[in-house]
Design a binder for these strands. Structure first.
Lengths: 173, 173
DNA sequence: GATATTTGATATGGTCAATAACAATTATCA
DNA sequence: TGATAATTGTTATTGACCATATCAAATATC
């Protein structure tokens, strides 16, 4: 479906290349017709997702947390004592790609790897005190500046209906 | 929020590293708690989007069309006579990245670049006969195998409500 | 007519997803 | 018990996208 994250700085000047096409009143910047595209689930889903992530990043700018990093912190907090493989696979992250991500979070002292005494192959993941504090602030920012916009936009009831439908798609499609 | 397209081949064996934690009945593969994650808009949105794209690719396997390619064909069909910049920017694709994409579609004889006589800088985009035929088949596949699953899953009314909410997010968030 | 802008294109760098392979450790089981 | 298989974290590497700078040709502007 295509939809990139570009900042859309383009100065919106269509129409020249087809001057006079279909006897247009001349000078009117004819907008493209999306047509069936606006009814395509994937297209609309992708555009919405990009907008949401974009907004998330803005809201979290002060904490420098990406959606992925936020999800890791949330999951580690909710499931203390789990190892890298468990956390990663739950989030759909492949183990190799999770390494650099953890390196980042650990270097910022947000979480820590602890060698398990039960299985010395694995690293138990825990949040540091700073990690807990940052996550607390992050949750507030998300609730206040991010998720709140959904309620403004859709209303509480519709917001929940949307999340339920998306979950259903994510789990059963 | 993280969520990759991995095939999820992992054999689901958590629990060992925290044997005996919280007096578990021993041997039960304790699943991780998603917690607040399942209420995060971005997380659910991303997971749903990945599932939908995945399904789209399966449905279009016989035509070898990606979501992005399908959206280009749809838009070119609906807006014949537009140039690369117009089509690309409408889809949120940056012009440099659109070149290779068009090279691909053109090499498969699905669309063609035509030098505009009005403005010899620009390339007018049109679907070839083969492109039109392929798009027609693609639409049928999408309607039959892809979008239809949404109705099965949500019902017609909810499906439309979902699309409306996603469009609203995409446009107003 | 000189200068600026636009269009398609190339080159390039960054991020993210995916696979293969490896050492250390643990599990399996003959 | 001991040989073999499997698992964990890791590295290396590849490919798909996204983004920026830059360029030549063509056009617009003044």
């Amino acid at each position: 479906m295509t939809v990139s994250k570009s900042a859309e700085k383009s100065s919106e000047k269509p129409g020249e290349a087809t001057k006079g096409r279909k006897d247009a009143p001349e000078g009117l910047p004819e907008a493209l017709q999306l047509g069936e595209l606006s009814e395509q689930l994937g297209y609309v889903l992708k555009r919405a997702q990009l907008k949401v992530f974009e907004n998330f990043l803005r809201c979290m700018a002060s904490l420098q947390l990406t959606p992925a990093q936020f999800s890791v912190l949330l999951l580690v907090e909710k499931n203390p004592g789990r190892n890298q493989t468990e956390i990663a696979s739950t989030l759909g992250i492949l183990r190799p790609n999770f390494v650099a991500m953890l390196d980042n979070l650990e270097s910022r002292d947000l979480c820590a790897r602890i060698r398990s005494t039960n299985d010395r192959r694995s690293h138990i993941l825990v949040l540091t005190d700073k990690g807990k504090a940052v996550l607390t602030r992050a949750k507030k920012l998300v609730a206040t500046k991010h998720e709140s916009r959904l309620n403004e936009l859709l209303g509480q009831a519709n917001r929940q209906a949307l999340l339920d439908m998306l979950s259903k798609i994510a789990n059963e499609f």
